[in-house]
Structures are given as structure tokens and as C-alpha cells.
Design a binder for these strands. Structure first.
Lengths: 222, 222
DNA sequence: TGTATCGGATACGCCGGTGTATCGAAAATT
DNA sequence: AATTTTCGATACACCGGCGTATCCGATACA
């Protein structure tokens, strides 16, 4: 028997193994975004990562396990970014524009909108959840945690020109998330079709969200 | 040469052929919703429809062509239903409840919310469009036409207790559509996970939409 | 430096699904 | 009723991708 009876855990994976898994997940992120989880072949993922299928099956049991590992990693990263947005980015937004709300919305779009592939993956994650009872709880949990994070954000943040959110923050957060989804989707769709670079402002949803924020904010007596 | 020089068009398809195509589309509708367009095999669709693959390739060039034909059919049907909603269903909504807005929203959910599979297909349609420049324009067109239809609806409809929408109807429509999407997704997700039958009211998005409608309506001086 | 272990590469057999070519029955046409 | 046309069924060859078993080089350890 082992001399150390306490170390029965699956023995911390080697650094090499960890790197390999990361590279496979990086590759899967791209391939999933481009082709979709179902169409993406294990072969394509391995090729992108510069590994063989042998490496893959040595690190993951199946494509599904890889997808779960990947989604966990990206969900954590997304929640971290949301915190960062509330803590660092939003407070630094310039407040000299004509419409402060539009400025803030623009800032948020710029912050999260660049991640086109992540939006594609979230959209597919949601879709998979709408079909598969094994995936649904995972996605719902992500969705709930993201909403909670945004509620925190709304609680702590005061917009540039002394504007403050009023009303039920849960509901406001839910509405904002729905509208932000709509904006990023509009942008993706425009990008995928002809138009090379459309500004967020071109989206109907952009105006919708600005109008909405105006409805649910009021001057903050400070 | 033909005696009738004018009839060079692809000669109206036979009734039999039309029925076969319909049955194949019906089957594809289900299979696409359950498994997704990519994973759905032509074989599975044919089996569901009670045909062989021979029949399929005699009627459609490929799975993609079938998908386009199907989406056209369903998009038309959806737009028709939206008109029906504005013309027949909404005017008949009871107005005796405590919260007329909630009542109207419930009615609309009941009207469109039953179509779980259609929502799955729309979600995938959107996702495919976000990846493929050939599909994007089709989806954007659908999305735009649906929004226009809802704008018409908002223009003509007056809610039960003499409430009227005020503000930019385009933006309101866009917001409502985003929130309705959110509600139906919440319901689907809850259904797919454990919960057998959750009421629309259990969705955070339901409260969000009721709150929003209150924000953008005012008494109609009639 | 020798040896053991680990981790990725290679090679193999297998299967589901594809698209086509051919055939036969049913329907339309005369 | 005879014949032509239409349309779906059947059969076939083919391929991409899968999962495994085995091998071999690199790395860790003594």
C-alpha cells in the first residue's frame, strides 16, 4: 500500500497534461463556434490544436465531456469579466457626451461585444439546453449566476451624470440581458452577411436599450 | 416542339408530389427540433415521414434545400398567426382581471407559447444565421418582417382597460420580441429540465415584460 | 545514467450515413 | 384498356469519422 494514506485523490494532473487539455479546449472553442458542436468532428478539433485523436481520447472521454469542461471554463471567465466591468470599466466611462446612457451602453458593448465566438457558443449552449435535460440545469445555472452578477452591478454602479437605476433590479437585469443579447446577435448577423463593420448603434436593439435605460433610471441625489 | 410555347415554366407540380413534400417537411420539423439540423440525418427524416431516401432525393436536392423550404413555410405561417393574434385573439381578451397587462401577456404567451418545437427551430435558425452568410439574410428578413408585424399590432391594438402604447413603436416592438423570446426560452428550459408544467408567470422574464408594458403604456382617451 | 512511467502518435476495424443508379408499381394520358 | 410517365423503393459503392489497441519517444525518478 501507499505510504501516504491520505492522498487517494486523483493525484493532481501533470502540468503537461493540463497544457494539452487547455490547447484542446482552445481549439474546440473555435471549431464549435464555427461549425457547431454537433458538426464539429473530434478530428477537426485535434487538427486545430495540433494533436492527434490519440491525445484527445487520452484527455477526454468524449466530445461531450470536452464541451462541458470548456463551458465551465468559459462561464467562469465570463463571470469574472462581468465583475471587472462593474469594478474597473464602467466607473471610468467618460461622462461628457450628450447622452450619458448611450455612452455607457456603447462602453458595455465594446467590452463584451468583441467576443463574437463566445456569443455563438452561448447561443448554442442555450439551444442544446432547450433540447437536452442533462444540459438544461447547467445552462440555467449559468444564466442565473450571470443575472445575479448584473444585479450586483446595477446595485453598485451609478451612471456618469448621477443616474441611478430604480425599480426591481432583478427585472431590469433580465430585460437588459435580453436586449444585450439582441444587440450582439444583430451585430453578428450583420457581420456574417455582407456588412464588414457595423456599429452597435445601427442595431434597432441599441436604440431600444437606450430608451429602456432612460425609462428605468432617475437622477441620483448624492 | 411543344404545341404550347407559353408553358415553359416548371409545370405545376402534381398533387401527389406536393403531399410528399409536405409530409417530409412535417417530419423534418420534428426531427430538426429534437436533434438539430446538423445531427438530423436524412434517413431519420424519411423514416419519420414513412418514406425512403429515394423519395427524399427525388423531392429535394439536399437537406439544406429542405431546411429552406421548411423555414419559408413556417415563417409564412408564423406571420399569419401574428396577424390573427392582432385581429381576433387580443380584442377578445377579458378585461376584468386585476392587472389587465398581465392578462394580455398571458394570452399572448398561451397563443404562441405552445409551439415549443417552433421556438427550438427559430433558435437554431438564428444560430445558423450567425455562422453562415448564406443564411443570415434569410433570417434577418424574417426577423424584420416579424418586427414590422408586431409594430402594426401595437398600432392597432388597444389593451383592455383603455391602455395605449406610447413612444417609438419600433423600439417597443423590438424590446417586446426580445422579452417574449426570453419567456419562451425560460419555459422550454424549465420543461426540459425536471419541472413538468411551469406557468409562464414563474419566469422572471414574465414579470419583466409586465413591468415593461406598464412603463410604455398610458390611458387611452377614447 | 539506467529504468519506469506517462502521454501522445499511429494503425486498424467498424459503422452510420450519403448519393446514385436501377427497378417496378401506380397514376395519368390517349 | 394500352402505353407512357411519374415517383418512390431497393440495392450498391463509398467515405468520413469513431473508438481502441498498440507502439514509441520524452520526461521523471532513482
Amino acid at each position: 500500500m501507499s505510504s501516504d494514506v491520505d492522498s487517494m485523490q486523483p493525484v493532481a494532473e501533470s502540468e503537461r497534461r493540463r497544457r494539452t487539455r487547455e490547447r484542446l479546449m482552445d481549439a474546440a472553442f473555435e471549431v464549435f463556434a464555427e461549425e457547431g458542436v454537433h458538426s464539429a468532428s473530434v478530428e477537426a478539433i485535434c487538427e486545430r490544436a495540433g494533436f492527434s485523436r490519440g491525445a484527445f481520447y487520452s484527455n477526454f472521454e468524449s466530445k461531450e465531456e470536452l464541451f462541458f469542461a470548456l463551458s465551465d471554463r468559459e462561464v467562469d471567465s465570463t463571470l469574472l469579466k462581468a465583475s471587472e466591468l462593474a469594478r474597473d470599466v464602467l466607473p471610468a466611462t467618460p461622462t461628457d457626451g450628450a447622452d450619458v446612457v448611450a455612452e455607457v451602453v456603447r462602453t458595455m458593448i465594446a467590452f463584451v461585444g468583441g467576443e463574437a465566438n463566445w456569443h455563438r457558443i452561448v447561443a448554442e449552449y442555450r439551444l442544446l439546453a432547450m433540447r437536452d435535460g442533462a444540459i438544461a440545469p447547467r445552462y440555467v445555472d449559468f444564466s442565473r449566476r450571470l443575472n445575479d452578477r448584473v444585479v450586483e452591478l446595477l446595485q453598485t454602479v451609478t451612471l456618469g451624470a448621477g443616474l441611478r437605476f430604480v425599480g426591481d433590479l432583478q427585472l431590469i437585469s433580465r430585460t437588459l440581458l435580453a436586449l444585450f443579447s439582441a444587440i450582439t446577435e444583430d451585430q453578428l448577423l450583420a457581420g456574417v452577411a455582407g456588412a464588414p463593420d457595423v456599429a452597435a448603434e445601427d442595431s434597432l436593439a441599441f436604440d431600444a436599450i437606450v430608451a429602456y435605460v432612460h425609462l428605468v433610471t432617475e437622477p441620483d441625489e448624492d
